[in-house]
Design a protein around this nucleic acid. Structure first.
Lengths: 244, 244
DNA sequence: GTCTATACCCCGATAGAC
DNA sequence: GTCTATCGGGGTATAGAC
């Protein structure tokens, strides 16, 4: 029963809006169920059919929302990056409000711990974005902005520390000067090259710590993993010149 | 045509030996083909049927060699750990022979570079042992000895450095003391707790660097990756007290 | 947008003849 | 130890009716 145009200034839009809303709700439901299956079985096992089955739909119906399995994967990847980025930013913001003297070093450790906490809560989503690549899947460029959020946050923390006189870092290894300058120019032209390269290294090393814990490499080896991580993250902060 | 017993001292063994040899050859062929497919498609896509197809066998015949897909995976995992361990040990041994003054720091960097080199040459095998866990697979205890080889090598290097008066490390973060002592007792009772925990952290961090490169996280970010890694590995050596 | 039906693949694992 | 045949699942993706 299509009603007559009312006083709303954009009645066609109202209809479109309703459709768009319904579409968005179904899209969200699909992603939620896909995330559930991801958490249960891992990315390689994610299948459109299983998602459809669980939602009481038929598999072919999903193709109206995601043209292929890879598009669904891409959506999950972007969501995961955003979720991780939001968690890290929120932890940092909360710490800056309540924390006692939010020094750059403490902010750094706080953000690292937020990354770890998110990863432990969402192991399969973490594996999706920082684990082995999904075979046959190639991430499109559209994932880049979401993927950059945590990195930008870490850069900002280091920048704050080095704005008011940074801490000297060990000298650059012979031969790495050009790469260090390139990285600085790309990521943070205001930072010294040795800081830029240390930042990238610390970022990768942090994920080494997180992924080893999430992927079980610390089983029967590290017991008090929270304390271990706090200690190691403090070491990373030292490595980018945030301490002493 | 079974020949009469010859002068060989253990003729029955000769027959058994031939059977065993044939069996070993087929087993090796299966693993080789499986490794080939692993390199092409990743661990999640590895299938007994495809291996059998490629070898001109029928899938059911493989079950005489590997009772299940997981057993084949386990064999590949042990082989990968052993291959990596052998590469690291060989690089260290070669460096100690030819290298100019094999200091612990230089040995450390050499071993790290060997790990990186092996990983870049065998990305899927690296993913198999240090990437996201294969869904539904649980590694049996039989993988432990092979998995420990690189770790033992690194412990040995650090031990050598700290035998003749070690370098002081930053103090332990409050709350991590007990875990540090536990790790030291487990891994190297002769090393100070802060060295033991730094060693485990550096090990995980090294794999963060390697896996980021192997898994493509450095695409469009780090260009001169060999130089970058050498610099970062030197930083790791510093972190376990091997420098200055 | 959802449905049925279908084409055309894949897999692990086992039974039983040879 | 290898074979055929089979059980009993799984999957992506499309065509065409409604």
């Amino acid at each position: 029963m299509s009603t007559s145009r009312t006083s709303r200034s954009t009645p066609p839009r109202a209809t479109q809006g309703a459709r768009a809303r319904a579409r968005q709700e179904v899209t969200a439901a699909i992603k939620d169920e896909a995330r559930r299956q991801l958490a249960a079985d891992g990315a390689a096992e994610l299948s459109l059919r299983a998602v459809a089955r669980e939602l009481g739909m038929v598999s072919s119906a999903l193709y109206r929302y995601f043209p292929s399995r890879d598009d669904l994967l891409t959506a999950l990847i972007v969501d995961a990056y955003d979720s991780l980025g939001a968690a890290a930013e929120a932890a940092d913001a909360a710490f800056r409000e309540v924390g006692e003297e939010p020094t750059p070093a403490r902010r750094w450790v706080t953000v690292c711990q937020a990354v770890r906490g998110w990863a432990l809560e969402h192991p399969q989503e973490y594996a999706l974005i920082y684990g082995s690549p999904v075979p046959g899947y190639h991430a499109p460029m559209s994932t880049v902005p979401a993927a950059a959020r945590v990195g930008l946050l870490l850069i900002g923390i280091v920048r704050e520390a080095h704005e008011d006189g940074g801490v000297a870092l060990p000298p650059l290894t012979p031969g790495v000067g050009a790469e260090a300058r390139r990285l600085a120019a790309d990521l943070a032209p205001d930072l010294p090259p040795e800081v830029a390269i240390a930042l990238v290294a610390a970022w990768a090393q942090m994920h080494g710590l997180v992924s080893f814990e999430v992927f079980g490499q610390f089983n029967r080896l590290v017991e008090d993993r929270a304390a271990f991580f706090a200690h190691a993250a403090t070491g990373l902060a030292r490595g980018v010149g945030l301490m002493r």
